[in-house]
Design a protein around this nucleic acid. Structure first.
Length: 983
RNA sequence: GGGCGAUUAGCUCAGGGGUAGAGCGCCAUCCUCACAAGAUGGAGGUCAGAGGUUCAAGUCCUCUAUCGCCCACCA
């Protein structure tokens, strides 16, 4: 019997944060990879939800005896991180372009651990049972290597190609973007009707455009071949307005301002005038039309979307300024027919919101449209190998997959995986290297260091040693070399590499006799700089004049490999065998295309497996008004603040119970309050139990009486709850599971069970020993509470771990005790029925008291007539007295005079009217009830006189209706009588 | 232009054929010895609208309205 005091989440959670349960492999394995948070700052509420749901499942599986592998990690998040660091530098008065690439990347590498540490501590405070010794970073040594291998394989298979193609270009970030990174937004704009005169004869054609400034880059005007209006004009030449200078095409050819009128099927006659200006360098459709008609491309803008020399006098103007000028000049010349309002979808950069400029440039593409990728990825879902939950998302996935376009994977930014391509300056060959191209492990490691940008191609052995012996960025307890060994070179058990051994290795390589025996040596010494050069040779012409591609890869390229690269792919590691394919992926719907689809594509392509079995898609968090949370709006709720104010358990439970399968989850700080109360309630129940349980209870257990009916009742309730919870978790119905637990703990366990059992807990023998009834009550309390804690643990790990400590359990760790599952032998229908009746009876007595305005503090006498439920008054006399504040209970032959009457089912009971009381409340309550009953009776009468209902409805339904009718009629009669008698 | 989702108590949402549920808020009474972060009782809803299927419809189907989201190379 101890008092564990008041609930204090702060101290308690800090204590349990560091506690990481170990999983055993009693029951198979369960693996999940975390959606790696971006190293752009700290976690927001969406992450908290994501982490909580994964943790609930992982802890549940852990308690079910699974060896749970939840891999944590971080995403380098190319543009996003570059953007954040750029902003940071700006605030320090520095500029990315001024300090240069090397310095900038250094700044990023300094920033990343800051963000990573902050996220890591957030994961800890949320209670995530991730395996920290498996932590990965998308730019760590192993994953960078996996990226190069993947790129190489795809390139060799012809699935990656480089092409001069129309892409979406952000003039602010100065990079290409994939289709997905362009946000479309419908907004009002203008449609300009411009007159293009025929060359050499009278007449003109009117062209409609939303982008008049690109007119300077027009190379043709196109109409639909069947368009009667223009049929006879096709083939004629038009004079491009405003332009009188010679423009140069992409390939350097001069392009005349006299442009042809061409016909093309793709033109829709119903739009505008049916005549379209063709600007292949600034519009995707025009680009394709130009391709099929052999037209040149005239680019009129530079990378900043500022007009270039092809724009003649407009050169140097920003694109919208150019538009204004061109419109006004066209007006002056009388070439502008009209301006119509128009709404068009305008593309913006997802990061900086700058309007995208379609631009022709040389980029790398991943041919996801190839059946080898696409068909496999579609099949993974159609065959049911991968299951989306909720199901509806698979449709979205499939729709998107069916309409795929090739994925532009190159970015002109600095932060990211450099594309592992070395262009040959001699023959132009494209060399794709990875460490497979080098036989010796020293070479492999040197190559990887160079490819990762950790050393330059000219290096000293000391530099290499320093890096290899420095702590790994991802796992500081390991050196870089050890990290390499763990994930890539684990087969080289005795691998050690320092400056001396490297020097020795290289000197052997440089040995003139070696040159004779080997084809070519790998290293060259430069006595001037005292550096060695790692020689790369063109695979085609053997030239050493190679230059590495400057572009980096789309950040999602490495993310796409995440589920298998974290386990050591491309090596055939044990972890990969044990934990891949993973079992579950939990993520938001906003990255189904960005990430989920690409993981499926890359996973099925490289491993022939689905990267995961179940994909649980959760809602996105919004504020209380349903708006997106954003820093600029100031409506963000910081999970850390919530954890501080309400506790991680309250945060987790709130998120779990509010998770519905919709798209939005509205949240306000108030949401957490109610569930913090729930945690507090649980705590206090625990506190009560500890206060009332004998220290030596177990040794006294042999004196226990048989369980009471309320013990059997709560056992039934618990087991039914366990069934719901387990079933719900199997189906990822977090909310349902949490609600069942909430209801059980509060309504059944606290409100009724503890109250009912208090009577027995106060029962002692004369020599102050607990009576057998008392002992059985204590045993039951403990047993139910212990199972309840186990059921709750995955949702609220901290408070359950703490409370668990006080239990006389044979397991030190709650996770070791196993998850609780329904035990059919713990269900007692008879006791359930009886206690339910007792509860109904007590509630009715309380209601009568309230209607008679008897204050809770005053005890009253209760009389009852003999009836089918009368035995409850005897059997549970003490409980009824306590719970309904009754002084005495007496069996009476008739209703006592001047009494208020109440009833439950057939059982009537009476409380003497207090002085000066008026039973108004009681009567109006009864009248309301009577009205309700008359409605029920009417509709049931109707139903039961309906022949079709009687003949077609199932027997039990008819029976049920009859019973309800019967009961309602009886109750109505009783009410009428009671009302009359009170009056 | 296609597609998806939502519409149930004042608010946030459960309920997926058999006569409406929870939490918060509200009203009333209580600091009763686990818990005022609490206890007890109570008020409050023709389940967006219209049709249909069915003996029976928040629940299934169709249409409409409103709100929200996603996708899209109509210049």
């Amino acid at each position: 019997m101890i008092d564990i005091g008041k609930y204090d989440h702060i101290e308690l959670e800090q204590k349990w944060q560091k506690h990481m349960p170990k999983s055993e492999n009693k029951n198979g394995r369960f693996s999940v990879v975390i959606p790696p948070p971006n190293v752009t700052g700290s976690l927001h509420m969406g992450h908290a939800l994501n982490i909580t749901l994964q943790d609930i499942i992982c802890r549940w599986q852990l308690m079910n005896g699974k060896d749970v592998m939840w891999v944590p990690g971080f995403d380098h998040a190319g543009i996003a991180t570059q953007y954040v660091v750029e902003k940071k530098l700006q605030s320090e008065g520095k500029n990315r372009l001024e300090i240069g690439k090397g310095e900038f990347l250094k700044a990023v590498w300094e920033w990343v651990p800051v963000s990573r540490e902050s996220i890591k501590s957030q994961l800890l405070s949320l209670g995530a049972v991730v395996k920290w010794d498996m932590e990965r970073f998308t730019m760590d040594e192993g994953l960078s290597r996996a990226v190069r291998r993947a790129f190489k394989i795809l390139y060799k298979e012809g699935l990656i190609y480089r092409s001069n193609y129309m892409i979406s270009w952000c003039p602010n970030d100065l990079t290409a973007l994939s289709d997905l990174e362009v946000e479309h937004e419908e907004q009002p704009s203008e449609l300009y009707y411009i007159r293009y005169n025929l060359e050499g004869e009278d007449g003109y054609i009117v062209v409609a455009t939303t982008r008049p400034e690109t007119l300077l880059g027009d190379v043709a005007v196109a109409v639909h071949p069947q368009d009667e209006r223009y049929k006879n004009l096709v083939g004629k030449t038009l004079k491009l307005p405003l332009v009188s200078w010679e423009r140069l095409s992409e390939s350097g050819k001069p392009v005349s301002y006299k442009i042809p009128l061409i016909a093309d099927e793709r033109i829709k006659p119903e739009f505008g005038t049916g005549a379209v200006k063709i600007t292949p360098a600034h519009d995707a459709l025009d680009f394709e039309i130009a391709l099929s008609h052999g037209l040149e491309k005239v680019n009129v803008m530079d990378e900043h979307a500022v007009m270039n020399q092809n724009a003649g006098p407009f050169k140097g103007l920003e694109r919208y300024e150019a538009r204004k000028r061109i419109i006004s000049e066209l007006k002056t010349l009388g070439l502008l027919e009209k301006i119509e309002p128009h709404k068009s979808a305008i593309g913006r950069c997802y990061r900086c919101k700058t309007v995208i400029e379609p631009r022709v440039s040389s980029q790398w593409f991943l041919k996801v449209t190839d059946p080898r990728i696409k068909e496999k990825a579609i099949q993974m879902v159609t065959s049911g190998r991968i299951k989306f939950i909720p199901q509806g998302w698979s449709k979205l996935y499939l729709q998107w997959m069916e309409n795929l376009r090739d994925w532009c994977i190159s970015r002109q930014i600095w932060w990211g995986h450099k594309i592992p391509v070395w262009h040959c300056n001699s023959c132009g060959h494209i060399n794709v290297f990875d460490d497979e191209d080098f036989d010796r492990v020293y070479d492999k490691i040197i190559f990887n260091l160079i490819a990762d940008g950790k050393i330059s191609q000219d290096f000293t052995p000391e530099e290499v040693e320093k890096i290899l012996k420095s702590p790994s960025f991802t796992a500081p307890e390991l050196t870089v070399l050890e990290f390499y060994k763990k994930f890539a070179f684990y087969k080289y058990h005795s691998l050690d590499m320092d400056a001396n051994s490297l020097r020795l290795f290289i000197s052997q390589d440089l040995n003139p006799t070696a040159i004779l025996t080997e084809k070519k040596n790998r290293y060259r010494y430069n006595p001037k700089t005292k550096t060695y050069r790692f020689i790369l040779r063109c695979q085609h012409c053997n030239s050493e004049d190679l230059i590495q591609e400057e572009d980096v890869l789309d950040t999602w390229f490495s993310s796409a490999l995440w589920p298998f690269s974290v386990f050591g792919w491309p090596e055939d590691t044990k972890a990969l065998k044990d934990f891949y394919p993973t079992d579950l992926l939990v993520t938001g719907f906003d990255i189904i295309f960005f990430w989920v689809a690409r993981m499926i594509m890359m996973g099925s392509y490289f491993t022939n497996e689905a990267p995961f079995r179940d994909v649980y898609i959760h809602a996105l968090i919004r504020d209380e008004k349903g708006q997106k949370m954003s820093k600029t709006k100031g409506n963000v709720i910081d999970p850390l603040e919530v954890i501080k104010d309400y506790g991680a358990d309250a945060l987790r439970f709130t998120l779990a119970i509010l998770t519905q399968q919709g798209r939005d989850l509205k949240l306000s700080t108030k949401s957490f309050e109610g569930y913090r109360h729930f945690i507090n309630k649980l705590w206090n129940a625990g506190r009560f139990i500890m206060m009332n349980v004998d220290k030596d209870l177990l040794s006294k257990a042999i004196y226990s009486s048989a369980p009471g009916k309320e013990d059997l009742w709560i056992s039934s309730k618990l087991n039914k709850t366990a069934e719901i919870v387990n079933k719900s978790l199997e189906n990822y119905e977090f909310s349902q599971a949490a609600r069942a637990l909430y209801e059980f703990v509060w309504s059944d366990f606290c409100d009724w069970y503890i109250e009912l059992v208090k009577v027995r807990l106060k029962s002692f023998t004369q020599d102050n020993q607990p009576t057998p009834e008392n002992i059985s009550a204590q045993l039951s309390l403990l047993s139910i509470f212990e199972k309840t804690l186990r059921l709750l643990h995955p949702f609220i790990p901290f408070v359950t771990s703490e409370l668990w400590q006080y239990l006389p359990s044979s397991y030190q760790d709650i996770t070791k005790a196993g998850y609780y599952h329904k035990d059919p032998s713990g269900i007692f229908p008879e006791a359930e029925r009886e206690i339910e009746e007792l509860i109904g009876l007590i509630s009715s007595i309380r209601a009568l008291r309230a209607d008679l305005k008897i204050p809770p503090s005053s005890k009253v006498n209760l009389f009852y007539l003999k009836n089918s439920l009368s035995h409850l008054f005897g059997e549970f006399e003490a409980q009824i007295k306590t719970l309904a504040k009754i002084e005495s209970i007496e069996l009476s032959q008739a209703r006592p005079p001047s009494s208020g009457a109440g009833y439950f089912k057939d059982q009537e009971f009476f409380i003497p009217l207090p002085e000066n009381s008026s039973p108004e409340e009681l009567i109006s309550g009864y009248e309301r009830r009577l009205l309700e009953l008359s409605k029920t009776i009417e509709s049931l009468n109707q139903k039961l006189s309906n022949q079709e209902f009687l003949s077609k409805a199932p027997e039990e339904e008819v029976e049920k209706a009859k019973n309800i009718l019967e009961d309602s009629k009886n109750e109505a009669l009783r009410l009428q009588r009671l009302i009359k008698s009170i009056r």
